[in-house]
Computed example of a mutant assay.
Amino acid sequence: MKFKVIVVTSRTDLTDRIVDAAKAAGATGATIINGRGAGIHEARTFFGLTLDVQRDVILMLLEQHLVEPVLAAASEAGEFAKPGTGIAFVLDVESVAGLQSQIPKFQETLQKAE
């Protein structure tokens, strides 16, 4: 089996929608990490204090054949066509450990995809 990871950075208010859409498209779960963002637009200030833009980083480890539908669902749910809502990208995964309990589910979805 080949795996990839989808990395999503999103506004915190969109995180639950993104994860729900990704799960509906075939993702089995996600890891969510709090972060803060810096982009091409200046940070907002309030009385001279810079306000950091809070972001969530969502990591989803997927079988290769699920990447496109999950990425499309996350992009739509996250409203990524609008500026400042978030981005997503895919990374190759060389090796994986700790997924023994999920192997039957992976094999089942792989058979359905063929």
Rank of each mutant, 00 (worst) to 15 (best):
I32F: 08
G29T: 05
M1D: 04
T15A: 06
G39P: 13
D16N: 12
K112T: 05
L51I: 15
E63V: 04
G48C: 11
H65Q: 11
I33W: 07
E68Y: 10
G35T: 13
R36K: 09
T45A: 08
F46D: 12
R11I: 04
P104A: 14
L110I: 13
I32S: 14
V8D: 00
F80L: 10
H65K: 14
F89V: 11
Q102F: 14
H41D: 09
A27C: 04
T28I: 12
I103W: 02
E63N: 07
V90W: 01
K2A: 12
K2D: 03
A43W: 03
M1V: 05
K82L: 09
A21Q: 03
A72T: 06
A22W: 00
I6H: 01
V70L: 01
R17C: 00
I103M: 11
A27T: 01
V90H: 12
G29A: 07
I18A: 06
A74G: 08
S95D: 11
G98M: 00
E108G: 14
K2F: 03
V93D: 07
L51Q: 15
T12E: 13
T12C: 14
A74E: 02
S101T: 11
L66G: 00
M60I: 10
E68M: 11
F106G: 09
T85V: 00
N34W: 08
M60E: 02
V53T: 13
I6G: 02
S95L: 06
A81H: 14
G48T: 04
